[in-house]
Simulated assay, not measured.
Amino acid sequence: MKLRKVSAAIATVLTLSLAATACGDGDSGSGGKKITVGIKFDQPGIGLKTQDGKYTGFDVDVATYVAKELGYEAKDIEWKQSPSAQRETMLANGDVKFIAASYSITDKRKEKVDFAGPYFLAHQDLLVRKDETGIAQGTDLNSKKLCSVTGSTSAQNVKDKIAPKADLQPLGGYSECLTGLENKSVDALTTDDAILAGYASQKEHEGKFKLAGLKLSDEKYGIGIKKGDSDLKGKINKALEKMKSDGSWDKFVAANFGPSGYKAENAPAIDAS
């Protein structure tokens, strides 16, 4: 009877020990803590997972900097793809600690999540061929073929407010639009200027395209966090302020957008409210 009780006690201790090891609160096998961060995997210059499994882009650099200020080294970061339509749900479910993924701050989104920042001011713009001289303003798109991805609000914004006679050419992805722009089956591509600059900066596209510089809208990129996490918001805002003051922000902009000739706005003021 005593032997049975001892065996049961040992089994209980082992079970609890294994459970504690499995839960680990995000600890890695080497004893270091981990943090899961959401980014885009398919936006060159912003957030891109390369063929060799590396992660590059402005948002990646910003997120890495912020994570370090929160106490995590680059090796402690687990990157998670964050498609636009899933970002609010991922934050609400705790799938990620924060998201840096060309995430424009809007009143509608602020009903579901909180934002630190903004850390970047983008504008809707046009990408055209380097030798293009016939598109100098938005109204010049009337009767021109304008490409964007299927379901894009950017192209519809042009059609509704700027050039009602623009010939919209929705395609499956930005790469298809770039191919169309290069072979002259479309005249312009529209989305945020930072995204356009990222594509134009890719090695295979250098020297082929230019941004029109039209600033058709203002898009303030923020770092998304779970609704109500004011402590994390304060810590990230502090990290973003430091990133601006120590020159890292300028370095990240130059490294990721420089080859396209894109001139970014100055780093926006942090909204501490």
Rank of each mutant, 00 (worst) to 15 (best):
A254W: 07
A194N: 04
S230Q: 07
A254N: 09
G224V: 05
K242A: 13
K97Q: 08
K165N: 12
V128F: 07
A254F: 08
D231N: 00
S175G: 10
V62M: 08
L196F: 06
V253Y: 12
L146F: 03
P259R: 01
R87V: 11
K34R: 08
A63M: 08
N157T: 03
K97I: 11
G228E: 03
S30F: 07
G47K: 00
A116L: 03
I99N: 05
Y65G: 06
L3E: 15
S245G: 14
D167E: 12
L3K: 15
G198F: 12
G213Q: 15
C177P: 05
V113E: 08
Q169C: 10
A269K: 11
S217T: 02
S185N: 15
F209A: 12
R129Y: 14
Y103D: 14
M243I: 07
A239R: 08
I195T: 01
K220E: 04
H205D: 14
D27N: 06
G38N: 05
E78C: 12
N142I: 02
H205N: 09
K233T: 03
K161Y: 14
R87S: 10
L141G: 00
A19M: 03
A267S: 01
T153P: 08
L216V: 15
S175E: 09
I105R: 11
T179V: 09
V37I: 15
E265V: 15
G228F: 02
R87H: 10
A264H: 05
K2P: 09
S260Y: 09
V37E: 15
E88D: 13
A264L: 05
L168I: 02
T153C: 15
I99F: 04
Q137H: 06
S104C: 09
G45F: 01
T50L: 12
F98D: 01
Y174A: 10
T139W: 06
A194I: 04
S175R: 12
A101M: 01
G180E: 01
E78S: 15
I77W: 00
S82P: 07
L240T: 03
R87M: 14
E69S: 13
L48T: 01
A272V: 15
A194E: 03
S143C: 04
E204Y: 12
N237Q: 09
K2A: 14
Q86H: 15
D27S: 04
K75S: 07
D140V: 04
N93I: 08
N237K: 11
S248I: 07
V66A: 00
Q43W: 02
S217W: 01
A155Q: 08
S152A: 03
D193G: 05
V96I: 14
